[in-house]
Design a binder for these strands. Sequence first.
DNA 1: TCCATATTTCCAATATTATGGAAATGAAGG
DNA 2: CCTTCATTTCCATAATATTGGAAATATGGA
Lengths: 118, 118
Amino acid sequence: MESKPAVNMLSALGHEGRLAVFRLLVKAGPQGIAAGEIARGLAVPPNSLSANLNILSHAGLIASRREGRSIIYSADYGAMSRLLAFLMEDCCGGAPEICTPLDAILARAKACAPGSAC
Amino acid sequence: MESKPAVNMLSALGHEGRLAVFRLLVKAGPQGIAAGEIARGLAVPPNSLSANLNILSHAGLIASRREGRSIIYSADYGAMSRLLAFLMEDCCGGAPEICTPLDAILARAKACAPGSAC
DNA sequence: TCCATATTTCCAATATTATGGAAATGAAGG
DNA sequence: CCTTCATTTCCATAATATTGGAAATATGGA
């Protein structure tokens, strides 16, 4: 990934409210959540939420689709993976021993499949 | 990791100049680079750089030590790992298939040890 | 002590971002 | 066509971040 889209993603996620929205969408899975439901769940006014959803969307981190009267938002896992890859590349280009903790992190993350205690 | 320090880190990295600094420091390894050398390398005025180093430092992403007249900055790999872990956790809590691309990413990152073609 | 180097701090101007009320748009149903 | 619901857009205000010049601090050496 280039540097500029990575900056946009990081900047989009570097905001308490937006990170909360993104985490919620990631947990929700590909089916996504309606904007109104997000607003109720996180207790934020709908216009602020809309602005933040727009920022996340422009950063490429989330997608949206209309379903009846609602607009459903969902996390873009590919974008997330690319961002993580971008951050990891530099990390491991410097010193090989930096990579090894990531193995453990990934193993733990994988153990957190839905249904497990985590 | 809690949400707040993660937001601080993401926000710190969500800036073109600071991301460039951090990437440079990550690539430089634990020995770090002097502030002046960073400024010359990235062609930024020293006072702006100082402000950005301060933001990265407050976010916990870099450390500094004085060495003679220079101040040497270095990336905090532990902080970086914790941030990646934080992002991965939610990612994998949602759907297990999201984790699998990260395996490939990590394998590729590990292959990029210094000296290899990458 | 005096000077040169390295970096930070101070400060003000500018730009960007965040916030929330109110109005506008779009969709479904009677 | 009218009403209701869901969401966005518009707008103004407030807050925060970015930038760079100039001065201040700290270190090492003559």
